[in-house]
């Protein structure tokens, strides 16, 4: 309960700050030196936040769709051949640092939102895929047997039984992906993507702690909100199937 109140307060604070950053200037003034501005105004914080979230949302949706599709394919009889390979690739792929993936996308995509989106998408595939695989392969054999025995077609089994049962685990994967993407997107501003990283980096370059703090604060609150939101969703989904 206190958790829910805290989340609501954080959300309201975030919205108020983004709606009118200037009115929070006194809060950040102690962190500035030599009369530097307390609030980042180069680009609107609201528009940076929106483009940051847009980037993350796009990447997460794309990775989720592709990763779940791939996980479904390698767990069907026709795709079983790829299963061992898929497991190895995911486990090795996740040791790749997200920043390195981002840096390596630049030569291919050039600067801007492109490489960030590609890096977020590629890196985001792995947690969703790994979880979807675990969710789809770790199901009770009795439930599968009963579904087959009652005459559900493979497609009906997938949509009516396997996917709903795998949902909580898949959601965990999406949450991991969303949180990682949110963080990695800040670094995207080093390759000229419009994200909240811009504020932090401007702060680092001009030694303006206020910028660093406000950039970090906005991303941090959003990350925590997304994390908590997903966790609620997962608990709800898990409770429905009696695992709560």
């Amino acid at each position: 309960m206190t958790g829910r109140v805290l989340m609501a307060v954080a959300l309201l604070f975030l919205l108020a700050f983004l709606a009118s950053p200037e009115s929070f200037a006194p809060l950040f003034e102690p962190f500035t030196r030599n009369n530097a501005p307390a609030i980042y105004t180069q680009t609107g914080l609201m528009s940076l936040t929106l483009s940051h979230l847009g980037l993350v949302l796009l990447a997460v949706i794309a990775s989720t769709l592709i990763a779940v599709t791939l996980a479904i394919l390698v767990t069907r009889p026709a795709g079983r051949e790829f299963l061992p390979l898929a497991r190895t690739v995911t486990s090795v792929g996740q040791t790749f640092p997200p920043v390195a993936v981002l840096a390596l996308a630049v030569p291919v995509m050039g600067f801007g939102a492109g490489p960030t989106l590609v890096a977020l998408f590629l890196y985001g595939l792995l947690p969703v895929f790994e979880n979807a695989l675990a969710g789809l392969t770790g199901q009770s054999p009795q439930v599968q047997e009963a579904a087959r025995g009652m005459g559900l077609t493979p497609r009906q089994r997938l949509w009516q039984v396997e996917l709903p049962l795998a949902l909580p685990v898949i959601l965990t994967g999406v949450r991991l992906t969303a949180v990682i993407s949110l963080g990695t997107a800040t670094i995207g501003s080093t390759v000229a993507a419009k994200t909240l990283g811009e504020v932090i980096i401007a702060g680092l370059l001009s030694s303006n702690t206020a910028f660093v703090l406000q950039g970090g604060m906005v991303v941090g609150i959003i990350a925590v909100l997304i994390y908590e939101g997903f966790q609620r969703l997962e608990q709800f989904a898990a409770a429905r199937i009696g695992q709560g």
Binding site: Q142, V143, A146, G149, M150
Partner: peptide
């Protein structure tokens, strides 16, 4: 067709296999 056949035949197993969701 196997799935049509199975819809005509009742099937119950140990541990019931109820759909938990």
């Amino acid at each position: 067709e196997p799935h049509l056949l199975r819809r005509q035949i009742g099937y119950a197993i140990q541990g019931h296999g109820l759909f938990p969701h």
